[in-house]
Amino acid sequence: MKLREWVEAGDDARLLVIIEAQDVLSVELLRRQLRDMGEVSCSEQQAGTWQLGLLAHSCGSLDVCLARVQGKVAALNRGRAAAPAELVETRLVSAAAASLACAPMIIGPFTLVSQDELECGPRQIRFDGGKAFGSGSHPSTRLAVTLLERTAAELVPARVLDIGCGSGVLSLISARLGARHTVGVDICPDSLAVARRNVERNNLSSRITIT
């Protein structure tokens, strides 16, 4: 990173990396590998093209941080016949712009936005996947959301059991689609903690139980 870039972004600058991939599996694998480095979001730009954004935590060396990302992308691409994932943008952003740096993810009729979003519309869900499974990008999650949409009319009087709820993303969507009450269960304590935070931030504690 150039010193001038650091000065212009400010002392609180954070590294933003945008990675593009042609398949959602690559995006999900990278998301899991990069989530300990900062805030990660992913979204489908157009049919067959996905973008993953990493807003890295403050670290001692931005060059080391970037090298780690490049290494993980290279390892993913190694030996793959499919179109490789690639870094399409790398820049510094100030703390003021950090919350806008990573694009929100659209899943079904909803948009997953930051937990810190002050105003949240009826089609937005405050969400942070943390280290739990269930970022919203995995094909199985998207298929489940499609099925929930198709049966939305039946959800209104129904109770939903979300087995292996992970981050709680499907529990949240079930409630938003009208389920009377949803119970999310998981054997991972970290996942339960993440899911409970997501439920609380969306004011759905009266309609979703995480256990």
Rank of each mutant, 00 (worst) to 15 (best):
E44Q: 14
I107L: 14
R4L: 13
E44A: 06
L87F: 01
A95K: 15
E5N: 11
G38P: 00
E119V: 13
S171T: 06
P84W: 07
T182E: 13
N198R: 02
T146H: 14
L112C: 10
A13Y: 00
S205H: 02
R207E: 14
A179T: 15
L147K: 06
G166I: 15
G168Y: 05
I106K: 09
N202A: 10
N202Q: 11
G136R: 03
A95E: 15
M37P: 00
G178F: 09
V194Q: 03
A98D: 03
L52M: 11
G53Q: 00
M105F: 04
S174M: 05
A56F: 07
I208N: 01
G134R: 00
L177G: 04
L118Q: 12
H57A: 05
T209I: 04
R123N: 13
L143P: 04
H138A: 08
T151Q: 12
V17D: 00
A56Y: 05
G178A: 10
V7H: 07
S114D: 14
L16V: 14
L155W: 01
L87Q: 03
E28K: 05
W50C: 04
R201P: 00
A153L: 09
A56M: 13
P109G: 06
C65K: 00
D63N: 04
S26H: 10
L54E: 01
R32N: 14
G121E: 07
N77V: 06
Q115G: 12
Q45R: 13
D63K: 00
I210G: 02
I18L: 15
L161Y: 06
A47Y: 08
W6P: 00
A85S: 15
C165E: 10
G168E: 07
M105N: 08
M105C: 14
V145S: 09
F127T: 10
E89H: 09
F110W: 13
N198F: 12
R150H: 08
E5Y: 06
R123T: 11
T146K: 15
N203H: 12
R14P: 01
